[in-house]
């Protein structure tokens, strides 16, 4: 089983242009900022919005605009779980689950609920459920129809942080027992990394990066990914032993290559000094601490100056350097700490 989709669509100012190949048993997380087109992509795969392109699921062509073929949503083996469950408010939990089953089989619905430990909620109305329970019922309602493609639209984001972990564990368990193609849309990197085998980063309707979570975070190709990986991302022209940044500043890096390149600097590799440091670091410039943010054992310092960066230092360093918002500092980055790859 597998999904092979080429989806293009245009709506007002927004254009989506995505190519996806997913094999069965694989969970893909589509990550991206708000407005990137994540939900539209899911709706297109479900057949809820017309597309230009082709969608093939397990050899069955669901959409082929060139051949004028479009299988409507209700005849696709596609299940969707929405952000806020969308259980039918006028039906019991049992009837909700039975709705998608042949002959509205309450017997099979009950079995599904029992297996998920929700058997005692069968006769409850959706409004009587907790947020976590409602989302679990919504997942079961969809899984019970045995879809070949499971689409999850931010399935945890409407839940309280306190129960999110619990529902995520359950989701992870249910997903491993599901043998079709799984696509999860989220803007929460933790959710993506915890549940997905592969990340697809969507920005402005286009895939900017895809790969395993480790691959994607090691070599961010956009500001969004760099932020979620917590690293500094710079872009410029490779000049052999240095990179010429857009601002004109030269950033020394041993293997800068040539042409358009990305450079990643981990915040811990950014050192701060009160006076100009002597010795090895080849990248030294003046900077100004814009704001400080305590994160666990470290303090993240956002710097402005020739090269805007985030530095991560220890609380004791903050004291020794008399760092505060507005403080002028010397910023140093060892050339060997700059990792470069082609853009």
């Amino acid at each position: 089983m597998s999904l092979d989709a080429t989806i293009r669509l245009k709506r007002d100012e927004f254009a989506l242009d995505v190519q996806l190949e997913v094999s069965a048993g694989e969970t893909i997380a589509v990550l991206g900022p708000n407005g990137a087109g994540k939900t539209t992509l899911l709706r297109a795969l479900a057949g809820l919005v017309p597309i230009n392109g082709r969608v093939e699921l397990n050899g069955q062509v669901l959409d082929d605009s060139a051949a004028g073929r479009h299988i409507p949503t209700e005849r696709r083996r596609v299940g969707i779980v929405f952000q806020d469950h969308v259980l039918f408010p006028h039906m019991t939990v049992l009837d909700n689950v039975a709705f998608g089953l042949p002959h509205d089989s309450t017997r099979i619905a009950r079995e599904w609920l029992e297996r998920a430990g929700l058997g005692d909620r069968a006769n409850a109305m959706p409004r009587e459920l907790s947020g976590g329970q409602a989302q679990r019922v919504a997942l079961i309602r969809t899984l019970a129809t045995e879809p070949h493609l499971l689409l999850l639209d931010e399935p945890l984001s409407a839940l309280d942080v306190t129960i999110r972990a619990e529902v995520r564990r359950e989701l992870s368990r249910q997903l491993s027992g599901f043998h079709g193609v799984r696509i999860l849309v989220t803007h929460d990197p933790l959710e993506a990394i915890a549940l997905a085998d592969r990340l697809v980063v969507l920005e402005h309707g286009k895939v900017v990066q895809s790969g395993s979570p480790a691959e994607v975070t090691a070599r961010p190709r956009s500001r969004f990914v760099a932020d979620l990986a917590g690293v500094n991302l710079l872009r410029g022209q490779g000049r052999g032993d240095h990179i010429e940044l857009a601002s004109g500043t030269a950033l020394a890096a041993p293997e800068a290559g040539d042409g358009d390149v990305f450079a990643v600097i981990h915040p811990r590799a950014v050192a701060l000094y009160t006076s100009r440091p002597e010795g090895t670091p080849r990248n030294v410039w003046r900077g100004r601490a814009e704001d400080l943010d305590l994160q666990g054992e470290r303090v993240r310092v956002r710097l402005s100056g020739a090269v805007p960066l985030v530095a991560e230092v220890t609380p004791s360093a903050v004291r020794e350097l008399h760092l505060d918002a507005g403080a002028e500092v010397w910023v140093a980055v060892k050339a060997t700490e700059v990792s470069v790859y082609p853009a």
Binding site: A46, E74, G79, I80, V86
Partner: peptide, 23 residues
């Protein structure tokens, strides 16, 4: 609600009678 019903395999009339009308 109607989209969820369709994704669960309900055709036009069933969506209307079982979901839209009651709501």
């Amino acid at each position: 609600y109607e989209e969820a019903a369709r994704a669960l395999g309900a055709t036009g009339w069933r969506v209307f009678a079982r979901v839209t009308l009651p709501l």
